[in-house]
């Protein structure tokens, strides 16, 4: 019976399918980032990058994006000029 179902669904052992799906679902459930927190992340990114380059602070965007089985933080920053000597340290 299970053999028939497996042929219909055309994939491997359902335990592994469940495990992979749960990894993704739980990661999502646990990530409970408030807009305030996203704003703080954005400001920290600006702060760190500004040590190395001149950036357009107003252009910075930070988003969480879903991949098929991962989650990515995507940030887009317009760089105006990279400092010749890093100001860090």
């Amino acid at each position: 019976m299970l053999g028939i179902l497996r042929r219909i669904w055309g994939d491997g052992a359902s335990g592994q399918v469940a495990r992979k799906r749960m990894q993704f679902v739980l990661m999502h459930d646990r990530i409970d980032i408030t807009p305030d927190m996203m704003e703080a992340v954005k400001n920290d990114i600006i702060k760190v990058l500004s040590r190395y380059m001149e950036i357009d602070g107003g252009s910075v965007k930070v988003d969480l994006e879903e991949g098929k089985d991962f989650m990515a933080l995507i940030s887009n920053v317009q760089v105006k000029r990279v400092y010749r000597h890093s100001t860090s340290g």
Binding site: A13, G15, A18, R19, M22, L26
Partner: peptide, 18 residues
């Protein structure tokens, strides 16, 4: 039996998730 056949998450799978 189902775990053995691969049709149920194992104890280790569940501990790793939670």
């Amino acid at each position: 039996k189902m775990v053995k056949k691969g049709d149920m998450m194992s104890t280790n799978d569940i501990i790793a998730l939670l």
